[in-house]
Every structure is written in C-alpha cells, then in structure tokens.
Design a protein around this nucleic acid. Sequence first.
DNA 1: CGGCTGAATCGAATCGATTCGACAACTGTC
DNA 2: GACAGTTGTCGAATCGATTCGATTCAGCCG
Lengths: 337, 337
Amino acid sequence: MAKLAGVSGSTASLAFSGGSISPATRERVMAAARELNYSGPDPRARSLRQGRSGIVGVIIEDRVLNSFRDPMTLAALDGISQELGEGSGLLLLTATGDGESTIQSAVFDAAIFMGCSPHLARSIEIMRQRSVPMVAIEGQAFEGVLAVSIDNREASASLARLVRDLGHRRVATVTLPLTSVRERGPVTPELVGAATTAVSLDRLEGAREVYPELGGIVAAGSSSDEGFAAGLALLSGAADARPTAIIAQSDLLAVGVIRAAESLGLGVPADVTVVGFDGARIEGLTDHDLTTIRQPATEKGRAAGRAVTDLLAGTPAFDVSFTSVLHVGSTSGPVPA
Amino acid sequence: MAKLAGVSGSTASLAFSGGSISPATRERVMAAARELNYSGPDPRARSLRQGRSGIVGVIIEDRVLNSFRDPMTLAALDGISQELGEGSGLLLLTATGDGESTIQSAVFDAAIFMGCSPHLARSIEIMRQRSVPMVAIEGQAFEGVLAVSIDNREASASLARLVRDLGHRRVATVTLPLTSVRERGPVTPELVGAATTAVSLDRLEGAREVYPELGGIVAAGSSSDEGFAAGLALLSGAADARPTAIIAQSDLLAVGVIRAAESLGLGVPADVTVVGFDGARIEGLTDHDLTTIRQPATEKGRAAGRAVTDLLAGTPAFDVSFTSVLHVGSTSGPVPA
DNA sequence: CGGCTGAATCGAATCGATTCGACAACTGTC
DNA sequence: GACAGTTGTCGAATCGATTCGATTCAGCCG
C-alpha cells in the first residue's frame, strides 16, 4: 500500500481526490508516491468502491467496420463522444446476439445501443437487473430503454409522396438489412414479417403508405457497392418493365443505384429517379445533388449522450425524437415520357 | 450478498465461474440468484480481484469523427476488434494531450495508441508505471511501447521514384497534418522541424529522398475536401509554374486533388499526375484507378490485437512492420509535353 | 482557563467478488 | 476396516481504494 509510505492511511485518498488536507501533508504524500512509483489510485478499486466507472458502453451488432462505415452511425458516435466529453470513455461492444458476450462482464455505468434488434433482449434484461441505464439510438423500443430516434416512417412517406407526385407508378425500393442476416435478396413478405431492424422496417412502411405494394431488394448493408448491385438487379429489365423511380433507404445505397443506372446507360433523373435517405455528404457524388431526407445524425448522438448523463445524474430524462427534413435535389424528376 | 440466499458464501463464485461443484448445489445457487434478481458477479469487483477487466483501451488524439472517417484507421480498429473477439471490449479514449484525461482513471488492461504523438508522453509514463502493456499503431516510437507500422518512408520513396522516372521535375506534395494543430498551410521548414506525427514525417522524408526540396501544402486532415482545397492552391498557377505531379499522403487527399485538377480543367494524368497513399477503396472514384501504395490496414489492427493478447498472456511479443505494395494505376503518367 | 468550533488526520468498515487452505464426506483398494 | 485419494464446501484473507464517524489539536471567545 502506497499509503504506508508517507504516513497516513486514508489520508492519501484525500490527497489525490483533493479533500480538505493541509498542503504540507499533501506534498508529503505526493513525494512518497513518486518514490514508490505510484501513480494515482487504481481505477478498478475506485470504481468498485464508488460504484461508478465513468465508462459508457456502446453496443453495436455488426462488426466495427460495417457499423462505422455508415456515416450516420459514425456521426452519432461522434455526437455521443462530444457530449460525454473526455471525462468518460466509450466502451465499444460488439454483440452478435446469442453468446454470452462482454456485455455481461464488462465494466460500465450506462449503455447506448446503436440500431439494435430484439436479439439483445437477454442482454437488455441483464442490464435492467443490474439497473444500468440504457438508451437506444434507432433501436427497437424496449421497456426501460430510452429511445432516441427520428421520424423514419413519416419522413420516408414524405419522400414517397414526392415520388408519387412526380407521377411515378413503377417504383422499387432498396432497403437496409431487415434482419441480422446480411444477405442481398428480394423483399419478400416472409422477410418483412421476420424483420427485426426497426429503422428499415419503419422506412419501408412509410414508403408503403404511398405505394402499398412496394417491393424491391434488401441490401446486405449500407454501402454504395450494395446499392450498385441492387440497382443493377432492379434496372436491368426492359424499358417498359423496369422501375422509373427507386427509393433507397440510405444515401450510400442511392449513390450505388445511381452508379448502376449510369453504367446501364440510364440517365438520372431523365430515365430513373433515385432518392436516398440520410443527408450524408458523400465523397464523390459531385455531379448530383441527391434528393433525400436530411437527418441530424450527430444530434442524435448528442441527445443519447445527454440522456445518459441525465440518467446517471438521476435527472429525469425522456425519449427524444428528431424531425428530419426533405431535401429535393436533382436526382428526382418526372416520369420519362 | 446474493450468496446468503442459497446456502454458501464463496461457493456461489464457483457456481458462476464453473468450478468443481455438484450439479445440485449449482442449481440451488442459480435458483436463489433468480429469486433475488441477481445476474452474475459484479464486473467491478471481479476486475478488482482478478486484476483483469478484459478491456483494451484504444487511444486516439482527434475526435472520433475525424479519426474514423479515415478508412485506414477504421480498418485498423476493425482489425483490432476482430482479433480480440467478443471476449473483450474496446474502450475508445480521446486524448487531446494535455489535460488529465480518462486515460489515468479508466479501467483497462492494455492500451493501443492509434497514430499518437509525443503529446501523450505523460500518459504513457503513467501507464508504464502501472505496467499496462502498450502497443502503438503508426505512432511515435516509445520505450516500452510495441510498434506496429508499415514501411512509410521506403514506400513513399518508391512512389516518388516512380514519379521521377516518369520525368517530373516540378512536383509538390499534400501532407497529412504534421502537428496536432489542424490547420491548412504551406509546408515550411519550421513546421517540419516541429512535426510530431511520425507517419506524415516519414512519408515526407521518403519523398524527399528523391525530391530533396519537395514542398507543398499541409492538409488539416485526411479528407477529400482538404485535398480539394490543397489541390486548388497548388494548381491554380500558370501552366509553366504549376507542378506536373502531386504526391498526396493519403488516397482521400489524392481524390480531392484530382477533383481540384478537373475543376480547373486539367486532365489527370494528361496535365497532372496524382498519386496517393493507402490503397483505400474510395467511394465514387470510379473513373480513375489511383496510383498509390497499398497498405494492409486491417492487418495492422490485427497485429496490434495479437500483440496485446500476447503481452497480456506473458508471451513474448515483438514490433511488427508490414511491407506495403506500390500500385501503379491510371492517375500517373509522363510529363505533359 | 474552560468550552466550543473547525480543520486535519486517522481507524475501521465497506464495496463484491476470487482464491487458497482447511475440512468433511465419500470412493476405492488392499 | 483402515488409509489414501477425490470432491465438494466453507471461512477467512485479499484486491485497493473510498467514506463515515471519531479523535486530536489549535485557535478563539467569553
């Protein structure tokens, strides 16, 4: 015990935490600490005693690469980090759902779920028992989990209305993954029925308010490559069979679709209207101004961070829902003659 | 104490950790746990006792957004995560350098510095005292810190040689930030002298092996916007004054430069040769095949993860240096006539 | 000079597990 | 039937701080 060195026992604690202590004693303690190569209290012991670690868990369900390649998710993480400041660390936890992951054995005071599905029900249950405050960004609604989200459904519907008002009848969609299975394929009733990803489902349902039969392709992730593949699949048909408008559930997907269209010799929006979702500033999309929904991603993260802070402080905290804005760019136009 | 419930004291521990215990007793303990709404041992206490938390600290110096918008850094993080698996969490710590950050008070068993500068000397000192194993990816070399890196200098030199062999005499560079000050500006001897970012400096020096006087612009970060701005600055001069080749220190910067060139009506590589560094798959760079250095970013992360595992296990671990590969694409060509 | 106040310091309890050594009961073996 | 060898349980010590209440001592007031 470093304390034996100087003189006292518990006084050392005061010296380090800045309690009421005489300058002389403090100096003596510090000197002894230097002597003994001791650098401040052990975080483990401290956190045990205080019941606080200053760590916030951030739970994602996919691999790190996939999660944060999506600009919206990354922005949200940045928002969280901004709001919590340097005072606390972000513990990144990858949870695939089944196995006993670190969620159950890691040290943290509060948890933020990023776009998580009901697969984590068990983990959530455990954390509830431990009475760890929880916040979910764009996640499934759960009892006792604060929700931070946007008006996915309504925003998506407004996008679909725009497309409808331009006169489009043959419309298809490219959705984000609906389940934890990351595989590209057609949108089928079974898949929709089994959907666990709230965001994708909400956006799909929003669009279906306008186009009840809306079908298309489920992408395996939010990347322009996926969008490209989906775009090719949707647009390869004959001119009178292929969709005249494609509603993509993310900007990255939309960019891919546009690229697919152009590689097939189709003009956007002359031959195909393409709309996205997110309002991300996409590298390399300089020749188009994407029609999309702009959502405040960083703000979502901030709100989540604030919610966590509030919850930990005991301040009452509430669900937050942001309103996103329709941005009409140059990738949407009337039905080709 | 949940233990009082069932029957024993320390036996409960065995029940949860799977020690030698009779099935009957185990069941009794579990039943009591359920009764009491107790879900496994408290991570804080456990980590205090065991001296292990299963958490690896990942230290970055910039904000989350800036750090991980760089595909290489993100890939490295993904590599780390892959290698460590679900067993352990990644504690993301943002350290600006001066203030007493979480580094000193957070719970973790090992630390990985991602591209960190000597600003963190004090933090490193503290962790050394605590005997927390440390690994640095592309960071300044430090006593007691394992290094994982690539042959920045040599790779950069080989790129410069390529450019020289194509006949270019007027060459400029766009470097990554040299110091923690994120501000765009010309490359000056003072700045280079004060450089703290090893990667940038190594790459610059590599290029200067071929072009000793090489000057240019220091970007404020690794983004195509920065590249664009730098490109504009470098290429706006008269035809016989402007560089015929630009060596960018990252692919994102290179993409920006290319875009700047094209916006000025210059062809790549007809009027300007542009080379990058990283080998990132850049969204939206479909019409060019960038000449660049391909580096194994994910592998770097993996190696760092492995190093951490080894260090924690007591296995001997060594510095790792990867070799990167020159990729000659279509953005480099002979000097315009 | 007694009594009171406030600051500085210390002891002991506590946080919630893990772990080691001791002990008891049980299994085989000769 | 005794003894060695397992197994399963339990008590107590330990991990390294924080924290509460008590104590000491100096200074101050009446």
